[in-house]
Design a protein around this nucleic acid. Structure first.
Length: 278
DNA sequence: ATCACGACCTGGAGGC
DNA sequence: TGCCTCCAGGTCGTGA
């Protein structure tokens, strides 16, 4: 579910929680991503701390915790496919698949994730760059922008398809399966084309397309196909504005050819066979 | 080293 | 109604 625009939407809607003091910590004990359980001891060590800021890198949300007399700490959250980060009343019943709850007085910050592909970890802020999840991430597509020349350089010699290239978080952090199809359609590039075939000019078009697609999605508070909601539980409206994703058989918005669906590396890819020629 | 694939999970949708 | 299969916004370890 959550790609960069969705995670950024969560970050923005979480803003009212900044300044709140963590009064309690709870976790389900159930394993999440890579069968790793939430770090119970480190979550409990957050109690007494204050939410000092909210950052994001790619699809990772970084919640900074300030704690008097303790080095600054960061709660790292990845929503996986079905994860939600919700602010709700402390008294609200706990939804099924709730895995982490930080009590903030009258409210709770809750991590809910049915498929348990999400991640929750706690690290010293000073050491976050060496955290396994963050160490390999490329520049953030929104904060750092997308540099066509950098994309061109990274694509040299690559046999991987453009679809895989755009999804590679070490090249660029934030693009997922929906926006990969959308950006390649926008740039009129075929998903199955080898990355090494990209020209410098095409790399520039791809960079611009990625930025446009992500910004548009963010303007609509993200794409809610099934699970995605913001921190207040509201869905995004970007699903109404998708050009090709999920639109197999529908006319291409540019040339009216029927949109095709193929599977690359086990993931659905949507494209127009007529106007995505390169 | 690079690349494609399967595994990790649950739930919803659709066919029978 | 129930059961079955297929599908899903991500990431990682494996083996070719």
């Amino acid at each position: 579910m959550p790609e960069l625009p969705e995670v950024e939407t969560v970050r923005r809607t979480l803003a009212p929680a900044v300044g709140a003091t963590i009064a309690s910590a709870w976790d389900s004990g159930k394993p999440l991503h890579m069968r790793r359980k939430p770090p119970r001891a480190r979550l409990h060590a957050l109690v007494g701390g204050k939410i000092a800021g909210l950052r994001r890198h790619g699809k990772y949300l970084l919640i900074d915790i300030a704690h008097r007399g303790v080095e600054p700490t960061t709660l790292i959250v990845h929503l996986g496919m079905t994860g939600r980060l919700l602010v709700c009343p402390h008294a609200a019943p706990r939804a099924p698949h709730t895995h982490v709850v930080l009590g903030l007085g009258a409210r709770d910050l809750r991590f809910v994730d049915p498929r348990r592909f999400g991640q929750v970890d706690v690290v010293a802020t000073a050491a976050e760059r060496s955290h396994a999840a963050l160490a390999q991430l490329g520049p953030d597509a929104l904060v750092d922008g997308v540099d066509g020349d950098a994309l061109f350089a990274r694509s040299r010699g690559k046999e991987a398809t453009l679809k895989a290239f755009v999804l590679d978080q070490s090249v660029l952090a934030g693009v997922g399966n929906i926006y990969a199809s959308e950006a390649l359609w926008r740039a009129q590039l075929r998903p199955s084309t080898r990355a090494r075939r990209l020209t410098r000019a095409q790399a520039g078009q791809l960079a611009a397309a990625i930025e446009e697609v992500l910004r548009n999605a963010l303007d609509h508070n993200g794409t809610s196909l099934r699970d995605f909601v913001d921190a207040g539980g509201a869905e995004g409206t970007n699903a109404d504005y998708l050009w090709v994703y999920g639109r197999e058989g529908e006319p291409c918005p540019r040339c009216k050819t029927r949109i095709r669906r193929v599977v690359h590396q086990g993931r659905a890819t949507f494209y127009c066979p007529t106007c995505q020629r390169a």
